[in-house]
Write a protein that binds this DNA or RNA. Sequence first.
DNA 1: TCAAATAATTCAACCAATAAACAAATCCCA
DNA 2: TGGGATTTGTTTATTGGTTGAATTATTTGA
Lengths: 371, 371
Amino acid sequence: MSASRSPVRQSSVRAHNLALVLQTVANSADRPSRAAVSAATGLTRATVSALVDDLIAGTLLTELDPAPRTGAGRPAAGLALAPDGPAGLGLEINVDYLAACVVDLTGAVRHRFVTRADQRLLPPCDSLAEVIRLAARAQQAATADGLVLAGAALAVPGLVAPGGLVRVAPNLGWQDVDAVTPLTAATGLPVTVDNEANLAALGELRADGAEPTFLYVSGEIGIGAGIVLDGELYRGGRGWSGEIGHVTVYPDGRPCRCGANGCLEQYAGQEAVAADPDLAAAALGIALSAVVNLLDLGVIVLGGGYAPEFERLRGGIEAELRRRVLTADLAPVSLRAAALGADAAMRGAADAVIRGVREDPAGWLATAQAV
Amino acid sequence: MSASRSPVRQSSVRAHNLALVLQTVANSADRPSRAAVSAATGLTRATVSALVDDLIAGTLLTELDPAPRTGAGRPAAGLALAPDGPAGLGLEINVDYLAACVVDLTGAVRHRFVTRADQRLLPPCDSLAEVIRLAARAQQAATADGLVLAGAALAVPGLVAPGGLVRVAPNLGWQDVDAVTPLTAATGLPVTVDNEANLAALGELRADGAEPTFLYVSGEIGIGAGIVLDGELYRGGRGWSGEIGHVTVYPDGRPCRCGANGCLEQYAGQEAVAADPDLAAAALGIALSAVVNLLDLGVIVLGGGYAPEFERLRGGIEAELRRRVLTADLAPVSLRAAALGADAAMRGAADAVIRGVREDPAGWLATAQAV
DNA sequence: TCAAATAATTCAACCAATAAACAAATCCCA
DNA sequence: TGGGATTTGTTTATTGGTTGAATTATTTGA
């Protein structure tokens, strides 16, 4: 079942190994030689050489000066991700700002545009028109740098259906908004739309020293979560996972706008945190304990509005985790503030595009050659 | 990242395609011909023929009379899983019984042995000795049928570490018990140990008409859950997922033996269900709403002690789900009783062994040939 | 009885990885 | 200063596995 339901031919072998080599270079701290990649992957030096040639021809890798020498022998040629390779366009529509950025293959933010403006009173088409303007500026800046964009991704604070339709974005006042069509038309790029917390979690995954399995919690007006399992975003059966804001904390507690009582959002939303940080921490601790009991996650990252309040919340959350997580004494749960700030979702969106290229370089090489 | 971190050679292609062909035959309602498998998988008829030859030689597939004819042309040879192929030995140690069963490659239960006896007062080695006796009887019965056992799996109601060590099984009174070593020594088979709810979920996955993504909840003295995502058991970062029994339902509620207050177990454990089914249903509904909000699972299966009480619990659970699941009106959550009864965990254990063979037939062929 | 149709096998060609030999470039030591 | 040791990277023949086309096998229907 786990095995993909499709046949494998020789070309799939090459596709897989291209990805393997690219990822190995990407995850290396230094600039590995072909021989080092060969040792790390288990592929022959000859094979690695052939694969690297393809990747260099497709501007996914570049050769650099060798890493500092060690002993005898012919000096190595250092490999690294190409800064002039395919880049990603990250977009975000949020309650009080719009943003766009260009991130290159190495993960460096090359351009960044932000417009602060309350989107709650605007119709969706106005917000979209403005984000399209930002996207156009970003595209110009990218082409001025000689960068080719591989695609665009848009982060939205709401429930997004698999096709990219925004079903509900309560804090924007959106309902069943199709953002994919206008953005594709305007940018000429393949466009995906995703939940803000999901993309922020992906952004966090790429930050330095990030663990492969963690829960990212974003505390804004609403509360969202991105579940990352083994380096992979878990989207749920229908793409609507991570709605931690409506996990019940106090069954007969405060009424929530969703119709239920005692949702986390009522005790740990932005207003609630400002009003009573201790109450917020306790409520968060109860909800997060449920997550850890269910999913056995060892790391929880607090982002969005929680990041600046992290030190004030930490103690209260950890107390509840110690009390309520069954395996707390077998395996500790660590809590940390998000490494990326407010840009997390936008960065994550751009990273998602880059990720696509990194995970399927063969596909990119094919499309790049076709043009 | 998702891409496995290992190189792919041509032999991996064959391994993958062998698995693909085997799974395709296994999942077919009828008895597909080589040509039908070719059409279903996208592999060439020539390739499928070669692969099928290998699978037949390894007694994983057999040729049968063709399925009912349709039109003109040479009649097909029907393919099916071999009933005399490798079988799995499923074992279970539970609070008030021990069990063993032999399941063949087709999923049929060939033999079944159960001993009713309270294990709570016995030291672990006594329970293990008795389950080893059952295992020996099952092995004899299997060899009498001409079956070769591919391995054994043991279901235990407790937390199991990745290596197979039972860290804690509160209702058995076990702590840090190594069941793998004595079982391997006694049976001469590769042995795995796993949580009872996890294995029961796997058993349920194999039942007719099962969905690929669901939550299995087992209500015994404790409450465990198995999370199945896309046909795959989710074990969590450290193998301890699914501890739904200690999800907080009423933060200041009844004290639990784990030290926390208001755990689900105190409101929906076996005793609580008997005492007040409505309270149990409400508590279950609250906890399950949290699961659905977090993981977006569309199907919940109630097993163990919940199965016979299903109709009495259903209404109360569904009411809470409707109220507390954010996406309840976008996508319904369906609730059903487990298809397998008390045998679920034992069957799931045997299935887990079979599953290993089905997912990696190349590995099995290699070991079978070596012998 | 022969043509059409469908199933399965055979065989040459191709593609990708491997293993081993070879070429290139540096260090180290006499 | 020069030769061996050492490591990197490339070249070449070989192997394994799938493909595609042709071939053989077996039935239905005109």
